Every structure is written in C-alpha cells, then in structure tokens.
Deep mutational scan, measured.
Amino acid sequence: MSIQHFRVALIPFFAAFCLPVFAHPETLVKVKDAEDQLGARVGYIELDLNSGKILESFRPEERFPMMSTFKVLLCGAVLSRVDAGQEQLGRRIHYSQNDLVEYSPVTEKHLTDGMTVRELCSAAITMSDNTAANLLLTTIGGPKELTAFLHNMGDHVTRLDRWEPELNEAIPNDERDTTMPAAMATTLRKLLTGELLTLASRQQLIDWMEADKVAGPLLRSALPAGWFIADKSGAGERGSRGIIAALGPDGKPSRIVVIYTTGSQATMDERNRQIAEIGASLIKHW
C-alpha cells in the first residue's frame, strides 16, 4: 500500500482519535458579512469528516447552483462504474471539434489522439474542462443518470439537468442544476469515506481534487503551510461562485467545507476574496 493510499485508508482512524471539535460562531459572522459585502445569498456548511456531524452552517438547506462543483460527483459516478466493471479508466475516447464547448483548455489539445477516461476526469476536476465533463456525462448516460446515481446514494436534493455550459445559467428560483450545502457536503463525505467506492477509487477521487489547479484564489489562499486540501470550485452566471473541499491540518483532511453564493453584482475577484476570507476565519478558529 502506498503512503497516499495509507493516508486515505486511515482518515477515519486518525479522526477518531482527534480531540473533540467545537464550532466557532466567528466564522458564521464572516459568512454573514460576506453576504453584506456581496449583496447576495451565501450558503455555508462545515462537517466533521469522521462523524458527519454538522459543526457550523448557514442557509444549509437553500438551493444554490452547483456550477462546476458537480464534476466531482460526476467522476465519482464514473469511478463507481469502474468498480462495477462497467468502465475502464484506460479506455480512450475520441471526439471532434464539434464536441468542444466553451472553456476546454485540455480537451482542445487532444482532438487528434483523444483522451482516456482517467485523463478526462483529471481534466474535468483539476482544470474544470467543460468538454471533458460533457464527454464523461455521455459515458454514464447524461445528466439524468448522474441525478439517479445521487438518488441511489441517498441524495434526493442534488440534481443535474443540463450539460456544460448551460448548467451554469443560475436563474433565480430555478431548481435545475442545483444542490443544497448540506446535501453536497453529505454526498461528498460519502464519496470520500464511505463504502460506495473502493479504496482505490476513493484515493483516485481525492487525488484529482488535491491536484486542483484553478481554485488557488479561494480556500487555498488562506491555508497555512502543512495543511491538506482537496477541492473543486465552480463559477456561473449572475454572480455565482462555489467551492467544495476536504481539508485539515497535519497533512490530512478532517472536515468537509461547502460554500456557495449566487445573485451578486460583485466582480469575480471580490467573490473570490470573500470566500478566501471565510476560509481564513475557519482556519483561525479551527
């Protein structure tokens, strides 16, 4: 067993022997301040990774656009098919120029040779490549099948209805392509620590998230040296922004954090800054 596999296998073990965790309302004060600064709703939840206990939450059962955070769930569904012998990570998928959609920095470079399922998941999570996500959605049967996968996990809230990039439209009061912070946090925890996926697939999923290259201005910008984070960000229309993450000190994750916002007129930089400040408060009061 590799060191990384050992780390993920012992996530519940280490967490069980940690000192009790206590909620700190100071972080919620910052979440509410972010709402004021952005002029928009902000949803927040913080779960203990081992027990699933909610440590703090704000608007945990209000719907927010998922945006690209759905790509972690998508690759979880792909990995479940791999575990069941219905898919192979090494299978190569070929596609054409007509398949390319807006923001496809990886797939646009491989029109000639195609990409493997493993490479597509890596591109979808680490670079948020939209064509990679659409190609992977095709392998599982489309958005409705991802929703069905989530329902089978016990998540009857999260739903995907459309493809990239239309799913980022974020129309107010439109339930399409949305989740709730509580539902997303619980589902992410199941994917990373539950028995739904094999140990190898859980490790692969967290490795992809740990290698995320496009979430630097968010929670990662607030992390002290030595902290662990595996995350996936999302951005959408109407001032929408979000991030889902597993993080913790001492090089291992111990909490799940989900943050979503929508309806702001603020710039992307300002949305990023507010999420980073929430992260800084979380870490300060850990």
Rank of each mutant, 00 (worst) to 15 (best):
P25F: 09
T27S: 09
L28H: 13
V31E: 01
D33V: 02
D33A: 02
A34N: 06
E35S: 13
Q37P: 08
L38A: 11
G39L: 08
A40S: 09
G43I: 00
Y44A: 03
I45M: 12
E46M: 15
E46R: 14
E46C: 15
L47C: 15
D48I: 07
N50E: 06
N50G: 06
S51V: 11
L55I: 03
L55M: 03
E56W: 02
S57Q: 03
P60E: 07
P60V: 14
R63S: 10
F64D: 00
P65T: 07
M67E: 13
F70G: 13
C75S: 05
L79E: 12
S80E: 15
R81P: 01
V82P: 01
V82T: 11
D83Q: 04
G85R: 08
Q86Y: 15
Q86S: 13
E87L: 05
Q88T: 11
L89P: 13
L89A: 10
G90Q: 10
R92H: 12
I93S: 14
H94P: 04
S96W: 09
S96G: 12
N98Q: 07
L100V: 08
V101C: 08
E102G: 04
Y103K: 02
Y103C: 11
Y103G: 04
S104N: 02
T107V: 13
T107C: 15
T107H: 01
E108Y: 07
K109R: 05
L111F: 03
T112R: 10
D113W: 03
T116K: 14
V117Y: 12
E119D: 15
E119A: 11
A124I: 11
I125D: 01
I125Y: 00
I125V: 03
I125S: 02
S128G: 05
S128D: 00
D129V: 00
D129Y: 00
A132W: 00
A132K: 00
A133M: 01
A133Q: 00
N134H: 11
N134P: 00
L136H: 01
L136C: 13
I140Q: 08
G142W: 04
P143G: 09
K144L: 04
K144Y: 03
K144Q: 03
F149P: 01
H151P: 07
H151K: 04
G154H: 09
G154L: 11
D155M: 01
V157I: 13
T158G: 06
R159F: 07
R159D: 12
R159H: 08
L160G: 08
L160S: 10
L160W: 05
R162I: 01
W163S: 08
E164N: 00
E164H: 00
E166S: 14
L167G: 09
E169R: 04
I171F: 15
P172V: 08
D174M: 11
D174C: 15
R176V: 14
D177R: 00
T178E: 04
T178P: 00
M180A: 02
P181N: 01
P181W: 00
P181S: 03
M184I: 02
A185T: 05
T186K: 15
T187Y: 15
T187C: 08
L188S: 03
R189L: 06
L191R: 01
L192E: 06
L192W: 03
T193N: 12
T193G: 07
E195Y: 15
L196S: 12
L196C: 14
L196H: 13
L197A: 13
L199Y: 04
Q203P: 02
Q203E: 04
L205G: 01
L205R: 00
I206T: 12
D207T: 04
W208F: 11
K213F: 15
K213C: 02
G216H: 07
L218A: 05
R220F: 15
S221W: 04
S221M: 06
A222C: 02
A222P: 07
L223Y: 03
L223M: 15
L223F: 13
L223G: 04
L223N: 12
G226P: 06
G226Y: 13
G226L: 11
W227S: 03
W227V: 03
W227P: 00
W227M: 10
I229W: 04
S233H: 02
S233V: 07
G234P: 00
E237F: 09
E237P: 07
E237Y: 13
R238M: 01
G242L: 00
I243E: 15
I243P: 00
I244T: 15
I244K: 00
G248A: 07
D250W: 02
S254L: 05
R255Y: 12
R255V: 13
Y260I: 02
Y260P: 00
Q265S: 06
A266K: 04
R271E: 14
R271I: 02
A276E: 09
I278W: 06
I278G: 00
G279W: 06
L282N: 06
K284C: 08
H285I: 02
W286H: 08
